[in-house]
């Protein structure tokens, strides 16, 4: 064996081959290193710039002095409320779609293929188009329509608000939920399902008693990932409900809200005193990163636990 190997390598010029091998490993390793260092650099700059202001007061106080001082509590609260409303819409709908795709539809049927294609497409549409859709459909069509029917002459629903923003965001995060719930449902072993059916349970009973409890962690993962996406996306809410500064926290579905990502965007590009608020921007970015990372990491842990269970 060893002799044969040396024979082959010498016959082809071992030095050259080794050099090429080293170069290729070196170049591809360097590429990986560059990407990793991009991640590290972004995280460290944000933390270095932001940790000084990262205090309890910053998290729990309102912005003061024309947004140049104070905290970001309304933005955090607005983000939380928006993502909660969004999950109320996206998680059940995504779960139902995933159940249909994995339990009812034949994998190669036209209907199932259409839905799968639609889900993939939905995931690839630019987020700004969702924003336009939210404005054109929810605000202008549904909202204005509701106003015409219930309160003619006044503008209640026909303007950007937290409900329309959450629904737009729910649509955006729907594919995330569908994919992760479907993956979780597939981890429920075939045999358990067959056993349930063999005992006389109907398909629906099997789903309710076997499939859903077995994939609960997957549904939770989907929800967490959706929330993380919803907390970070800004483009869909630019004109469906986010506001720069509000004197009060959102108290009704028709009120606008502040959002962490939107806050960063506005502070860094639109405000009068960009330079003055740079420490605030760093800290807000740090809070947003912290939020999405916590969510993402907990989703990863949940998912790996799910995979271990499968083994």
């Amino acid at each position: 064996m060893e002799q044969a190997a040396t024979f082959i390598s010498t016959s082809k010029g071992s030095a050259k081959r080794k050099l090429y091998g080293n170069i290729s490993v070196g170049v591809s390793g360097f590429a990986a290193l560059v990407i990793v260092s991009i991640v590290v650099v972004i995280i460290t700059t944000v933390i270095i710039g932001g940790y000084k202001n990262f205090t309890w007061e910053f998290l729990t106080q309102d912005p003061t002095e024309g947004m140049t001082a104070g905290g970001i509590f309304p933005a955090i609260l607005g983000t939380v409320i928006m993502t909660m409303l969004m999950s109320v819409m996206a998680v059940p709908l995504g779960t139902v779609t995933a159940i249909y795709l994995s339990e009812y539809a034949k994998p190669d049927s036209k209907f199932a293929r259409t839905i799968r294609f639609a889900v993939n497409t939905l995931a690839s549409i630019p987020s700004i188009v969702f924003g336009l859709f939210g404005l054109g459909f929810f605000v202008q069509f549904v909202g204005k329509g509701m106003d015409d029917v219930f309160t003619p002459g006044t503008l209640v629903w026909g303007q950007p608000n937290i409900l329309w923003a959450s629904m737009t965001m729910g649509l955006l995060t729907l594919p995330v939920v569908i994919v992760s719930v479907e993956e979780a449902i597939r981890t429920v072993p075939r045999e358990v399902r067959d056993a349930s059916l063999a005992l006389g349970a109907t398909r629906l009973q099997t789903i309710r008693k076997i499939v859903i409890p077995g994939s609960l962690s997957g549904i939770l993962t989907g929800m967490i990932l959706a929330i993380s996406r919803g907390a970070g996306e800004v483009a869909p809410i630019l004109f469906t409900g986010a506001a720069f500064f509000l004197p009060q926290i959102p108290h009704a579905l028709t009120s606008q809200f502040m959002h962490l990502g939107y806050h960063i965007y506005v502070l860094s590009t639109q405000s009068a005193n960009v330079d003055k608020t740079i420490p605030l921007q760093y800290t807000t970015t740090m809070v947003l990163l912290l939020l999405t990372f916590t969510l993402n990491i907990s989703a990863v842990i949940l998912r790996s636990r799910l995979r271990n269970k499968l083994k």
Partner: peptide, 23 residues
Amino acid sequence: VKPVIELLAGFPSVVIGFFALIV
């Protein structure tokens, strides 16, 4: 390496934009 690169996917685009703009 793999989880770190996948972590980049979790970066909100506004954070990347902020990093590009300021730093």
